[in-house]
Design a protein around this nucleic acid. Structure first.
Lengths: 111, 111
DNA sequence: CAGCATCCGCTCCGATACTG
DNA sequence: CAGTATCGGAGCGGATGCTG
């Protein structure tokens, strides 16, 4: 995955968005960050199935794409906070649409 | 990838939606199917970067997930039409949100 | 605490060639 | 036309252990 944005543009705007938020856990992380800044292990607890390596990479990609801001506080023990940029916050409609669809799916396809 | 829906439910509704539409090209295919039924090669032309193998699998997964209906017409040459189910059509808000975001990204990050 | 390093299996994806 | 078969490579994702 992870189609370069430039190529995604040639295909469809939808794919541009997919290339930005398509990674595993990315949208869930963004959903939590919409509530406010979160620390690394805090996000790890909020997304229980993601291990540190995966979570780290997703966060780096989000950072590289300008959706997430990483702030390091030079303390001991170290503290790192992740927050959304304006561009990241602009994903809110997508997150809400997907959250609503997922909820509805759970309701209608309930066990 | 391709987290089972059951596990996705344990994490977040957002991940449920991701597990359904997270594959490459899937959302673009759905976007085109929102316009009406399309044949296999027709979709191939609409999503130029997808090869037949990948396109086939994505369509099969969408079919298995109940989002897409596959209709075979017993003719020569063969004709197969793909269309959206009600559940598939319910993805429209997601497609539109992502399409809008992608367009906006292209506009503000224009070359 | 917030990660990076390493190993490793697996899935995914692309290219090519072939079939009913 | 609408796929399937096969091969191959890349990258994701998990487990574990280590570091400033």
């Amino acid at each position: 995955m992870r189609l370069p944005v430039r190529r995604a543009m040639e295909v469809c705007p939808v794919e541009v968005a997919v290339s930005a938020v398509g990674g595993t856990w990315k949208l869930t992380v963004i959903k939590h960050l919409l509530e406010g800044p979160r620390r690394f292990n805090e996000l790890g607890r909020l997304v229980p199935l993601a291990n540190t390596k995966t979570l780290t990479r997703q966060l780096r990609e989000l950072e590289d794409d300008g959706l997430v801001l990483r702030t390091v506080y030079p303390e001991v023990p170290p503290r790192v906070e992740y927050s959304l940029t304006d561009l990241g916050r602009s994903l809110q409609p997508i997150v809400e649409a997907m959250n609503a669809w997922g909820k509805d799916f759970e309701r209608t396809h309930a066990d």
